[in-house]
Amino acid sequence: MNGLNNPYFAQELSVHTEDRYDRALKRCVDRLHEQMATIGLRNPKIGTDGNKWIYCDGPDWVMGFQSGQYWLAYQLTGDAAFRNAAQARRPEYRKILENHRFRDHDLGFQFSLHSVADWLMTGDKEARDMGLSAAFALISRFRPEGGYIQAWSPFGANDPERAKFTNGRMIADTIQNLALLHWAHKETGIADYRDIAQIHAQTSADHLVRADDTTFHTYLFDPATGEPMRGETHQGYADNSCWARGQAWLMHGFTQCYAYTGDKHMLDMARRVCSKAEALLGTDSVPVWDFSLASHETPHLDSSAAAVMAAGLYLLSDQDIPNEESDHWRAFGNRLLDGLLETCDLTTTEGAQGLLAHGAAHVPAGRCDAMLPYGDYYFIEALMRSQGHTQFFW
């Protein structure tokens, strides 16, 4: 009998795969602990050529991912050092709540992985209050005339070009922030949180996903009337291309929306964008930063897109879907994790401060081939989901 068709061989292969992922997860936790004193209260923003961190200068959309990693490590180990490191960052999150200039569509990335995580893990009531304040600030960005949560904010009257660019714009990333609203609805029973999350998700399905199941990074509406105008990019190669991390946000995000609501349309959207990503990936195991053929002129990998995709695929495989389909999505997630471990894993690289190499933050702006805190967070989440963990902060 051919070994690949031998059920005993398949079972052994599965066990070895699980062992490999479990070892990788332990290395991630060890790296977090090892670098805790070096990082201190700072929040990593992007890596250098030498795999050292450059840190956020004040509140930043990426700041929640360090806290999120610490809370996951605390969940895995019970080591109070991780809990203390996450809670010690609370003053930085208060700054966001106290100054409207720091608040935008990324409040979920920030507060789900810091304050909501704290509440869920420790029962700290101040953390709960901060999470609810962030959720209220997020729904305050809802634009009912277009049915979306406004993405970025203008800088003020002295920058009309920024206002012209930002007003009336939604982006793919925001779907990952809707979990904060679903959590707030569960905590308070206030329907606005749930309803706005569902309306934004539907608008994402209607306008960010093209007929061929590729995706726009951003979509522009008339700021006054809400009339749909056009899809554009910001971090992708071109307006008509498919930015890999944008596709990944929607893969994970539509699946989260289904998990919260049971809306079959969200499940259908998740299946569609996941299937398209699989087709676009071809024989690769780590995506390039943009799936457009033209983007191969600068074929930078994006390990962060692969990590987000893998976490979303494991989440999708855990939904109430046929076993054969579940196995398919899990196998796709395994393929992406294997690609990360073979191509991007830094957990065995001495002196590296992060977990993954080859992240593409913003290629058109020259920020690529670097460690990224969100890639690291989703790498841990994907590894945990691969091991059967289902309790997260989203």
Rank of each mutant, 00 (worst) to 15 (best):
N2Q: 13
G3W: 13
N5T: 10
A10P: 14
H16I: 15
D19F: 14
R27W: 10
V29M: 07
R31V: 09
Q35N: 12
M36R: 12
T38F: 07
L41Y: 11
D57K: 11
G58H: 10
F65W: 02
F65N: 06
S67Y: 00
S67K: 00
Q75S: 15
T77H: 05
A85Y: 01
K95W: 00
R101A: 14
D104S: 12
F109C: 00
Q110E: 11
L113A: 00
S115H: 02
V116W: 08
D118H: 06
T122F: 14
T122A: 08
G123I: 06
A135F: 04
Y148W: 06
W152P: 11
A157I: 06
E161L: 13
F165Y: 14
A172G: 08
D173V: 10
D173N: 05
L178S: 05
A179K: 04
A179P: 07
L181Q: 04
A184Y: 09
H185N: 14
Y193K: 01
Y193I: 13
I199H: 14
H200Q: 12
S204G: 05
D206L: 04
V209P: 01
A211F: 10
A211Q: 11
T215G: 08
F216E: 08
T218I: 15
Y219K: 00
E227F: 13
G231K: 00
G231Q: 01
Q235K: 06
G236T: 01
A238D: 09
A238W: 13
S241D: 10
G246T: 05
G246E: 08
A248C: 03
H265P: 01
L267T: 02
A270H: 12
A270Y: 13
S275D: 13
A277M: 12
E278M: 14
E278K: 14
A279M: 11
L280A: 09
V288E: 08
D290L: 03
S292A: 15
H296K: 14
D302K: 09
A307T: 02
M309G: 15
A311E: 02
L313Y: 04
S317G: 13
S317A: 10
Q319W: 03
I321S: 02
E325K: 10
S326V: 06
L336C: 06
D338V: 01
C344L: 01
D345M: 08
T348Y: 08
G351K: 04
Q353N: 10
Q353Y: 05
G354K: 01
G359I: 04
C368V: 15
D369M: 06
M371T: 06
M371C: 04
Y374I: 03
F379G: 06
A382N: 11
A382M: 07
Q387D: 12
G388H: 07
H389T: 07
W394P: 02
